[in-house]
Simulated scan of single mutants.
Amino acid sequence: MYIKKILIGIVIIGLAVAAYIAYFVYGAMLKPNTAFNNDEAYLLIPTHANYSEVRGQLEPLLIDIDKFDALAEQKKYTTNVKAGRYIIKKGMSNNDIINTIRSQNKPIRIAFNNQETLAKLAGRIASQIEADSVSLIKAMTDKTFLSKNGFTKKTALGMYVPNSYEVYWNTSAETFRDKMLKEYDRFWNASRLAKAKQLNLTPDEVMTLASIVHEESKQASEQPRIAGVYLNRIRIGMPLQADPTIRYAAYQLPNYDGEIIKRVLNVHKEIDSPYNTYKYLGLPPGLIAMPDVSAIDAVLNAEKHDYFYFVADAKNIGFHKFSKTLSQHNANARAYHSYLNSQNIYN
């Protein structure tokens, strides 16, 4: 009888322990533990973050942070934090959350275009991924990297083809740069390389000319015609005489800092700079801005024609008038200058 009571007691204790374990497993592992009302919440865990930093982000998202702590400790997550961007879904259990932030780093899509300099590009990218602008510009201008891959600081901007790309939020500056080199090599496929060769231009030169074309016109429909004008000038040894290069040259000088040049004047054309295409023949030494893909392909597929001149069309703002002779061009230019005067634009 005594032994029977002992056995019953053991069974009762066993059941109690089992019930406690089941309660713990359900409460700590399987019970929904999210406190937010949206369908999803995002967690950005920085590189080298510790568990305390992760906990700080999770606490406002969870009903019971203590139970999460207990399970995180048991599953050894507290000493094995993974950087990245993670999506926590409404109704997830602690077990689901830990499994998610341990192994389901979600990529993001970043985008950039029309960045005038590497510094501005670095700032744009830094607003989208973990790497800061300082580390990005350092990676982008690394002399060893540029030399190894055939770029200079003046042509390096051309390596970044504007588009949207999928990367991980915690991508390092060097990893981002290396990915962009792969995308650049993919962009310059056999077809584009063959077209550049037919024009007797290198990819760097195509990008430089495309940057001028893009600054001349944002209208994709007329970019091939503008590209054709510049290629005609190059062919006969005529200076490019591209106003956007004059503006670029001026903006490098301290006395033009903060100014916006709306009208290129003779004084601007006297600036001594390799980017002054009124003074120096051929293409400038590098890009003056980041061209759209439309402008790059406009150069590679330039319109074949006999135009050597163009000027903004006062009657169709955003577009241009093209001419074959200097006399025609001068007449078109006078009309545009009259329009600028009527708008009180003198510099």
Rank of each mutant, 00 (worst) to 15 (best):
W188E: 02
K67V: 05
T277L: 09
N163I: 10
K76A: 07
Q74V: 08
I234G: 03
T208Y: 04
I98Y: 05
T47F: 04
L209Q: 02
N301D: 12
Q241A: 15
K315F: 05
A289P: 04
I108S: 14
K82R: 13
N114G: 11
H337C: 04
N80F: 07
Y280E: 00
A139S: 15
V206Q: 05
L283K: 05
H305R: 07
A131N: 04
N113T: 14
S221G: 09
S93P: 05
A18G: 01
L58F: 02
G9T: 03
R263V: 13
T79P: 06
L340C: 11
D243E: 11
Q104V: 03
F176E: 03
K75A: 06
S127A: 15
D142V: 14
P285Q: 03
A194Q: 01
P46F: 05
F145M: 07
N341Q: 15
H329L: 10
K5N: 10
K31V: 04
I12L: 06
Y165W: 10
L30A: 13
I261D: 06
A18V: 05
I261M: 09
P274F: 10
A312E: 03
I125E: 07
D313G: 08
K90T: 04
S217D: 02
A314H: 14
F319Y: 14
T325R: 11
P274W: 05
Y278H: 01
P284C: 06
I261E: 07
D313S: 14
Y26Q: 08
E303M: 12
Q343D: 09
S191E: 11
T245S: 07
T100H: 08
Y346M: 14
L231W: 09
T171S: 12
Q74E: 04
E259H: 07
T47S: 08
I13S: 06
I260K: 06
A196V: 07
S294Y: 13
L326K: 15
A331W: 05
K148N: 09
G150D: 13
G237D: 08
L30K: 09
F36R: 01
E130I: 09
E215Q: 12
K218P: 05
P244A: 11
N95V: 08
I260Q: 06
N332M: 13
I88D: 03
K315L: 04
T175H: 07
L71W: 00
L121T: 08
V161Y: 13
L146D: 12
T117H: 09
M92E: 11
L121S: 08
D69E: 01
